[in-house]
Design a protein around this nucleic acid. Structure first.
Lengths: 166, 166
DNA sequence: CGGCATCCTTAGGGATACTG
DNA sequence: CAGTATCCCTAAGGATGCCG
């Protein structure tokens, strides 16, 4: 394992290393989630939206876009499309989060948190908040290490481990 | 304060509430960060990249795109463009993260974490990891409430508070 | 070195109309 | 309700060349 550079937020002389973009995890994640509509659809999925028309209406996107994005997100395994039928009804389909999709929640929450902190969402309609069901406190995302320390931006190192390392 | 719905990851009957998309924090954040190039530039900024040509080369984007995105990110206040000069050189400019920009780090780390967990970044060139400088342990993002409990996806409530609430 | 101008291609996305 | 088909526009992004 080799320490590549120190992330400091503000400035760093840079060690000459580069992100090998072809396999940079961020670049790869962006292959799946890079469009506005993808984020909005995932947002809705977290809110419990499951039907096509609801995605269209609530994310405020057009049908063709919703159809295209849903198809992609299903094929990427973030959502599943499954048939169901209520007692007297015909068979319908609904979209549900997979575990893979649900695991994106920290990213979404990170965006919410950042937006509320910096974009003065003056919330003329009230302030949206995520809360811990058990204790009622607000929920956010934060950096934390495996030893359970809270980690500040300036305390991060970027390392590259040979092959089978953790 | 009013509880709107329970986020469960998998399915929820949905309470009829909608995200009022015009002021949805996610939608607003996406006005700033919705393109691949914006994420890649921010990634590079975290890695310490500061010069125009380095952004172009390391993020693997074209000059016009880099110029456009850098201009936007500066005007949005995520980066600052500042002149500097080394002893015998002419004045140059560099781009640095602002606090607002640096605060986006959890989102980036969330993407890295998700990508490594689900996109089998088999990392034929080694595995990238963020580590806590003090203890060397790997760093990730997680949901946590103000009372410092770790929060699972299914333990989240979405609430809407009247106006000046926290 | 740090861009901007130009041109081009592709992807994202809206509107409308139609179908099972 | 859940899409598909068509058409059109705009934004994202690459390639190339020029310029202070």
């Amino acid at each position: 394992m080799e320490t590549i550079l120190h992330l400091t937020g503000p400035l760093d002389p840079r060690s000459g290393w580069r992100a090998s973009p072809d396999r940079c995890p961020i670049a790869r994640a962006l292959d799946v989630m890079s469009t506005r509509s993808a984020f909005l659809i995932m947002r809705e999925a977290f809110y419990g939206t499951s039907r096509f028309d609801d995605f269209v209406g609530r994310a405020e996107i057009s049908e063709p876009v919703a159809a295209a994005r849903l198809r992609e997100l299903v094929s990427e395994g973030l959502l599943v499309r499954e048939p169901y039928r209520e007692p007297g009804q015909r068979t319908r389909h609904r979209y549900r989060l997979t575990e893979k999709g649900a695991d994106l929640l920290p990213v979404l929450v990170g965006l919410i948190q950042w937006s509320q902190r910096w974009l003065d969402d003056d919330g003329a309609g009230g302030v949206l908040a995520l809360r811990h069901r058990d204790c009622g406190e607000r929920v956010g995302v934060g950096l934390r290490c495996a030893a359970d320390h809270e980690v500040a931006v300036g305390e991060l190192d970027l390392t590259l481990a040979a092959a089978g390392a953790r």
